[in-house]
Structures are given as C-alpha cells and as structure tokens.
Computed example of a mutant assay.
Amino acid sequence: MVEVLVAVLLVSVALVGMAALQAQSLKNMNSTLQRTAAAHLIASGFEYIRSDVNPSTTSLTDYNLPMVCVGSTIPATGKMSTWLARYLAGGTHGLQAGTCIDVNCDAAQCQITVRWNDQKGSGGLSSQQLTESARLKPL
C-alpha cells in the first residue's frame, strides 16, 4: 500500500512539473513571436526603402520616421508613414500593442529599431529592442 502511495506521489510531482514546463514554454513562444514579428517588420521596411528609393533623386532622409507605436496615430506625412500604415492595416503582422518603430536614415544608410515589452517571456525586459542597419546608397 505504501508503495502505491509513493508511486502516486512521484507521478503527481512529475505531472505538475510537466504542466509548469508547458506554461513556461507558452510564455517563451509569445516572446519568440514578438522577436520574429520585429525582424519581419525591419526586413519589410528595408525592402520598401530599397524598392522605392531612386539613388539619383531621392534622399534617404525622406524615409526618417520618429518613434511610432502600434495602437497610436501614425503621422500623416513621410514615405515611411504611408508604408507603416499599410503594413499595420494588413492585420497579420503579429505585433503587440505598444510595439514601437523608429527609422533613422542619413545620406547612405538607414537604421530601423523596433522596441516592445517582453516581460511575459523568461527573463524578458520591459523594453526589448531589435536594431538593424543597412547601407542603401553607394558612397
């Protein structure tokens, strides 16, 4: 009889541990989704700039976009504002409310930064960010 109780106890502890592991896995999956969505947003932004820019007439500074957050009003002016409004209107971007994007371009290159709250993930920060730079015009 004691052996059965010990076996039931061990199985119960194992099942509780597996449930906790599954819960943590789901939290981290959400964190991974946000990182993937941020990387896709950055890649899409660079592709838009590459396809739109005319090296002989367009200044890359026309693509600058001050910090804009998902769920807030997007400025009505600027090349990247139009792109971002269309990107977010698609509805399948996977970005959580409060995710912010910032685009800074100079004469030859652009830097796109995406910031989001990642506290739901294991050891996540309240202000996680992903930044990429690309040279879009020859020197």
Rank of each mutant, 00 (worst) to 15 (best):
A37K: 01
V8S: 09
M18T: 15
M18I: 13
N30G: 13
V16M: 10
Q24N: 15
T36I: 07
A23E: 05
Q24Y: 08
K27P: 06
L21P: 04
A14D: 06
L26I: 09
T32V: 11
A23I: 04
A23Y: 02
A20H: 08
I42S: 00
A14R: 03
K27I: 08
T32G: 11
A39T: 14
V8R: 01
N30L: 14
V16A: 07
L33H: 08
A37H: 01
M18R: 02
A43E: 09
R35E: 12
T36N: 15
A23C: 05
A43F: 00
S25A: 15
M18P: 07
L15F: 08
L15C: 13
S25R: 10
A23H: 08
H40P: 00
L33M: 07
Q22P: 09
V13F: 00
A43W: 01
A43Y: 01
V8K: 00
K27F: 11
S31P: 03
A39V: 12
H40A: 06
N30F: 09
V13Y: 00
N28C: 11
A37V: 03
T32F: 12
A37Y: 00
I42E: 01
A19N: 11
S25Q: 15
L9I: 01
A20D: 11
I42V: 11
M29D: 02
V11H: 06
M18S: 11
V16L: 15
